[in-house]
Amino acid sequence: MAAASNPQTPRTRPRRRVRLLLPLLIVMAGLGGIGWHWASGLTCRQILVEGATHADEADLRRLAQVDTGAVLLDIDPEVVADRVRRHPWVAEAAVQRLPTGTVRIAVRERLPVALVLDERGRPSHYLDRDGFMMPVVSGAAYDVPVLHGVPEAYHPLRPLEHTPTRDLLAALAGLDAATHALVSELEWRDDGDWWLYTTPLPGGGSVPVRLGTASFAQRLHRLRAFWEQAVLTRPETQIRLIDLRFDSQIITRETSDQPSAVSR
């Protein structure tokens, strides 16, 4: 006959585990309480700003609204980062609370793709690829095309709403070095189109190029190809106008005043 099993055996093991785990849980809870008490007493001793080149660090600290002496746990990193992003030069911001008492603010600044001139031809502000506007500050010098006649005034927080200008900025941001070197100035005219003025030819002048209001990346690519194949190879021909508004052809006006079309 098989021996009867001991009904007490399976019940004693869980109880034994509980007795072993209980002291460990008590110790962990005690350490957690000590850690919380220690963390709740940490205060901000310094504010460290990293990545700022054109944004003044004092302005960023002022926007952050974090006071030295404030309890670290009372400082919300996301709230502080959102405040810092209100600086016109700041594209991204991240905030950390360090156990040393340091609040670290790391920023990534916007990259200009064009410089806007005012009605008197003076530098007004920069524009990035998304249409955000950055003030001209000391030390901010970029080799970017100059824009005239931008149809919206400067705003430190809001990007441009003018669709043709925003599309143009996105195209300028993606230019290769050779095409970028070809672009000198751009102008929004009363005829409702963007016009480009090329870098002056050696011994010659700048050539006006009518770009229109859309498809700027493709049109700038076509301009470079046309420039290398039909302009630089014919230095004796003076081109007075290039019109890129049409997908299937490039319209040019030369010294004869007779417009000609080149299929592309």
Rank of each mutant, 00 (worst) to 15 (best):
E119L: 09
R120P: 00
P123F: 10
H125C: 09
H125G: 04
Y126Q: 08
D130I: 02
G131D: 07
G131P: 02
P135E: 13
V136K: 02
S138M: 08
A140C: 05
A141G: 00
A141D: 15
A141L: 12
D143Q: 12
V144E: 08
P145C: 05
V146D: 06
L147H: 02
H148I: 00
H148T: 03
V150G: 05
V150C: 06
E152H: 02
E152Q: 14
Y154D: 05
Y154F: 14
L157T: 12
R158S: 13
P159F: 05
L160I: 10
H162A: 09
T163Q: 15
P164W: 05
P164L: 03
T165E: 13
T165K: 06
D167Q: 15
L169K: 07
A170S: 11
L172H: 03
L172R: 04
A173V: 05
G174Q: 13
L175S: 02
D176S: 01
A178C: 00
T179M: 00
T179C: 02
H180F: 04
L182Q: 08
S184C: 00
L186C: 07
L186H: 03
R189E: 12
D191Q: 11
D191S: 07
G192Y: 05
D193G: 00
W194R: 07
L196M: 13
T199I: 01
P200A: 06
G203C: 02
G204F: 08
G205N: 11
P208W: 04
P208H: 09
R210T: 03
L211E: 09
L211T: 06
L211F: 05
T213V: 14
T213D: 13
T213F: 07
A217G: 10
A217V: 05
A217N: 04
R222K: 13
R224T: 04
A225W: 12
A225D: 15
F226E: 08
Q229W: 02
L232P: 00
T233L: 03
T237Y: 08
